[in-house]
């Protein structure tokens, strides 16, 4: 008798393979979660301490808590005070930073010449080292509440930042790449458009970014001293009337708006124009 032995094999589906990409994606997700948890924790701790300190450490009139500030913010929005105040400050900043950018860039360009470099050398050093408050005081004394006082203060505080960045960008123009373009008979317009401007863009952007953040501080300061509109003006009125909740509300709104500009608007511009850097960083 022959015994027939058969073996049966059961196909077990292979587990899904974990690729390097999956591991990297999981690590990225984890990193993102940790970053957001820590960021939110920071807000929760500060707001919690603030709420507790209001009443427990200082009287509520002297230190209104976040809930009171939030209520005041809603009231200010309902009264239609917020947008005109921000509009007035923002228009001053934009005009001031724009003019500072033009003047600073021109100085950055002409300082490539040795004579102009000597001519502007100390002015740029003073511009870089002087606190904005000096220009705020001077322009407030000279121009009072005339509209160009804050603009001039912004220009005097920030032009040197733009000049230095532009000069550095021009000084480091990639000669090899420009020679390459010349060897391939690329015309001057295309050389400037595709080599000079993209090379200068990060320098210009850095100058613009710093000018903008300093411009905010200078504008609010000048408005506190002289203006009859804007965030600084509203802060001064609230302080005179001893409305501490309004003072804190304006400051908080200022923080929120500054964060929005930095993290959303400027970040979007940076992502759009400097995508190639991100691509390189990710490799």
């Amino acid at each position: 008798m022959i015994a027939v032995v058969t073996t049966m094999t059961t196909e077990v589906p292979a587990p899904d393979r974990v690729t390097q990409e999956d591991i990297e994606e999981a690590a990225r997700r984890k990193e993102l979660i940790i970053r957001w948890i820590s960021r939110i924790s920071g807000y929760v701790v500060v707001l919690g301490l603030w709420e507790w300190a209001s009443g427990a450490v200082l009287e509520e009139n002297l230190l209104p808590g976040p809930t009171r500030v939030l209520q005041t913010a809603v009231e200010l929005f309902q009264d239609g005070k917020v947008f005109p105040a921000f509009g007035a400050s923002l228009s001053r900043i934009l005009l001031g930073v724009f003019l500072s950018f033009i003047i600073g860039s021109m100085i950055g360009i002409i300082t490539q010449n040795r004579w102009f470099s000597g001519f502007f050398k100390d002015a740029i050093t003073i511009g870089l080292t002087s606190p904005g408050l000096i220009w705020v005081l001077i322009t407030a004394l000279v121009f009072g509440n005339r509209w160009f006082g804050p603009i001039l203060a912004i220009i005097l505080t920030t032009f040197a930042l733009v000049s230095v960045n532009v000069a550095e960008g021009i000084g480091s123009l990639p000669k090899d790449t420009l020679d390459m373009a010349r060897a391939f008979k690329v015309n001057l317009v295309d050389r400037n458009r595709h080599i000079v401007i993209p090379h200068l863009a990060p320098y210009l952007f850095t100058g613009l970014r710093f000018s903008f953040s300093i411009g905010w501080k200078v504008t609010v300061l000048t408005e506190i001293f002289t203006a009859s509109s804007g965030i600084g003006f509203e802060l001064r009125i609230a302080q005179i009337l001893f409305r501490q909740d309004e003072v804190l509300t304006w400051i908080l709104l200022f923080f929120v708006f500054a964060l929005f500009l930095e993290k959303v608007v400027l970040q979007a511009i940076e992502d759009r124009f400097f995508r190639w850097r991100k691509e390189i960083a990710s490799t």
Binding site: M180, F184, H194, P198, W276
Partner: peptide, 14 residues
Amino acid sequence: PGYVFQAARLLPWR
């Protein structure tokens, strides 16, 4: 003429 350089001399932003 065409030219190939010692370093590639590419535009990093393109």
